[in-house]
Design a protein around this nucleic acid. Sequence first.
DNA 1: GTGAAAGCGCTAACAC
DNA 2: GTGTTAGCGCTTTCAC
Lengths: 344, 344
Amino acid sequence: MPKPGTRLRLIDVAERAGVSLATASRSLAGREGVSEEVADRVRQVARELGYVANPYARTLAGGASSTVGLVVHQIDDPYFAEIASGVIEIAAEEGLLVQICHSGRDPDAELRQLRHLIAQRVGIILIAGSGYNDPRVEAEARAELSEFQSQGGRVAVIGRHALGVDAVLPDNEAGSRALAGHLLDLGHRHIAIAAGKEGLTTITDRIAGVSSALHQCGLSLDNIPIVHSDFTRGGGRMAAEQILSDHPETTAIIALNDAMAMGVLSTLRAHHIPVPEQMSVVGFDDVSVAADLAPSLTTIRLPMTDMGRMALSLALKPRSARPRRRPTGHLLVVRDSTGPAPSR
Amino acid sequence: MPKPGTRLRLIDVAERAGVSLATASRSLAGREGVSEEVADRVRQVARELGYVANPYARTLAGGASSTVGLVVHQIDDPYFAEIASGVIEIAAEEGLLVQICHSGRDPDAELRQLRHLIAQRVGIILIAGSGYNDPRVEAEARAELSEFQSQGGRVAVIGRHALGVDAVLPDNEAGSRALAGHLLDLGHRHIAIAAGKEGLTTITDRIAGVSSALHQCGLSLDNIPIVHSDFTRGGGRMAAEQILSDHPETTAIIALNDAMAMGVLSTLRAHHIPVPEQMSVVGFDDVSVAADLAPSLTTIRLPMTDMGRMALSLALKPRSARPRRRPTGHLLVVRDSTGPAPSR
DNA sequence: GTGAAAGCGCTAACAC
DNA sequence: GTGTTAGCGCTTTCAC
């Protein structure tokens, strides 16, 4: 009977199994150099006693840390919440702990969080969310991560390519090309873009996709207004207001994520502009509410939960010679927020 | 210059500051028994060197663990995402790490997560989300937590009262009383409830509030249909279908959370039933999308992010003789999804 | 194949 | 006030 306040230690298991501490450790870690019978017996005893290793002692003694640090812009953004959900799921299967921290779309905060996680000796770092166009920021993050990796840490990122690590890459460009193509097919020629703040690579990539689709129609990005605002519902509302006042000829708005699209829809409703009869709206991501909006949102589906799962799975594999890249694929989901361009 | 692969240790700081390990430790922990000058010097050196303590060593040596375990039903549910956001915010200020795990609304899974967190030696445990009506489950959780507390762990919960620990308590009953009162004031007499699965105390409490409002009008819960389904959008859709087919006289639906309300709205739209002209709908929680739905949702606002902040703040305080309770307050937010009962 | 023993980096008694 | 030292519970050489 352990003293109250004292939890089961490995030595207790070892004694009960009639082996040494070292053997017990090897057995539970599934390492070589223990006969099958002994190893089995130890595991058996450990299970019976309900032994759980002390992760602090384990990590301190040099074993790899079993915690994964997940950096997201903001956990209450559904995009990141769904990614986190996937990460947590895999982590639970693997017996890993997930530490979540916020970067708040601030490159310096992100760097701070990164350093903090490294100082905390997490074993795996996952970074979700757009990269920054600022090369200095990316370089610093890259240096930090490469140092971390050289000490045995594992890293994977979601949605950024400039970090030289394993990456899950959303189909930003192809997705928005499909989105713009869909609107062009419907006859829209006065398209406006509600974009997030400049400086995020996600924005850049998604705009590039639109550009590419426009070119195929002999149009150019130069002809269409791009309004930069926050990458949030509030930002969408602001962008929509500006588009309505400055570009009244607009018949379709491409919001570069679903959050902005929701803001756009909200503003159009306030202005009594029927969607899609008078204005088509598209989003990007297909967060789970997108289907339940009124009108339901035409958007690009990204498998966010899967992306979280994929990222952690990548990080769980041994590091490869060159960074792996896992494109996510995408799917144009046509719903009720888009329709033919109004004849004018 | 530390060897590559070797991080800064406290002893390095101590040497640089010309003091012993113990003094350095005391200085950084801000503990008694060090002269101000020395302490300042040590802190100064630590800052210059960019020293961050190894939390594993620290915890192992007996200092309190600086990680907080947060158990939520599901992180990609906006209710929990917003709570988590508040927790993460305070944790960041306090230099704490947040570990998030899922219970998936499964009492046994919750118990497993709890035991796991305790085995992991977290210092603080936060549990968010409804309790269970099953006394066995609550008793087991309670026992586990009280053992954890007796070993110095700190606990706070959000939205459950049967655990004998500090609690942030959403105004479930008063909120739904206000909600039902609002509908009754509008003349609705055929009200249906779209409820989550039985067995959750949140459901019980919110139904009790409705009951109380009904009684004030001389009505009773017996007269109104309660459809139990999942506490999610999908559950809301199913409940709405059933209400429409089995209780066609209904003029108002109380969904016991916003997720269900969204499902209800979605189904009503599919049936071309105008809201609020022909059917009023209310939700509960005021998740951030509620205002952006069409029609925007009348609901009870709960300050989720604050609730997260509050819970961690409670847990950070020393334990009091008797569990503290912090009611959240609530606010009836009337939007476009409710209107006068149609004359029939 | 198994055991003994030396740390990992820190905190907390305990001396001075 | 400050320093010395014994662990915390585990992994990992190094002997056997």
